Simulated assay, not measured.
Amino acid sequence: MNAQEVIKLYDVVPNSKPVEYKEKSETGADGITRISEVTDPEMFVYKPANPNGTAIFICPGGGYRILAISHEGHDVAKVLNDWGITAFVLKYRLPDDRSMMDKSIGPLQDAQRAIQLIRENAKQWNIDPKKVGVMGFSAGGHLAASLSTKYGIPLIENPKKHLSGPAFQFLFIR
């Protein structure tokens, strides 16, 4: 099963600079797909057959150099679907002076936007907005922990006041 929907996080990406390079996606001999040079963040939506109202968005790891998006993202989303959990795989920007005005906040902006979008669209995805959690692996675990502790510092616009921390988190840090 593949994601049923891919959502761009922004119409205009905040904190960004124009770049001449393109995003790269490569699958290694180990079968792991790695994405680098992300400038246009997205979320992949995985809807379960029988949703239980819980949602988790997943931040793949990769040392803030790449996103190990297959085994630390899409594969995990499919397992969560089997449990009735609506899953979102976050393809977030990686810190880069070439593409960001402030590389220290780019990934966290994308995580804040992800939870904001999930809560704003909770009804259409059969999600309880109070049951939205985050899961992260390695650098993605750091990002998930940052979102869980720094949600009171808005780094993106929040006109509908849907920006707040996750209800729970799973952090897998190596």
Results as ranks from 00 to 15, higher is better:
Pro41Val: 06
Ala111Ser: 02
Ser25Cys: 13
Asp40Ile: 12
Phe168Asn: 15
Gln169Leu: 13
Leu108Val: 09
Tyr92Ile: 04
Gly28Met: 06
Gly141Arg: 05
Ile56Pro: 13
Val38Ala: 15
Val6Lys: 13
Arg174Lys: 11
Ala3Val: 10
Ala114Gln: 05
Phe172Ile: 15
Asp96His: 11
Glu42Ile: 10
Ile69Leu: 06
Gln169Ser: 15
Lys47Arg: 12
Gln169Tyr: 10
Ile127Val: 02
Asn15Glu: 14
His71Met: 06
Leu155Phe: 07
Glu20Asn: 13
Asp75Tyr: 10
Gly73Asp: 04
Ala122Gly: 04
Arg98Trp: 08
Asn50Lys: 15
Pro166Ala: 01
Phe170Val: 15
Pro166Thr: 09
Met100His: 15
Asn50Val: 14
Tyr92His: 09
Gln124Tyr: 07
Pro14Met: 08
Leu155Lys: 11
Tyr46Arg: 05
Ser148Glu: 03
Arg65Ser: 10
Leu147Tyr: 01
Leu163Ala: 11
Asn81Ala: 07
Trp83Val: 08
Val13Thr: 03
Ile118Glu: 05
Ile35Asp: 07
Ala77Lys: 03
Gly62Phe: 02
Gly73Glu: 04
Pro18Ala: 11
Gln112Pro: 01
Asn50Ser: 13
Pro159Tyr: 00
Val132Arg: 02
Leu147Gln: 04
Lys103Pro: 07
Gly165Asn: 10
Gly84Cys: 07
Gln169Thr: 12
Ala167Cys: 06
Pro18Asp: 11
Asn52Glu: 03
Leu155Val: 09
Met101Gln: 15
Val79Tyr: 05
Pro129Met: 02
Lys47Tyr: 01
Leu147Trp: 03
Tyr21Asp: 07
Arg113Ser: 04
Ile153Asp: 14
Tyr10Pro: 11
Ser148Thr: 03
Met43Thr: 08
His74Lys: 14
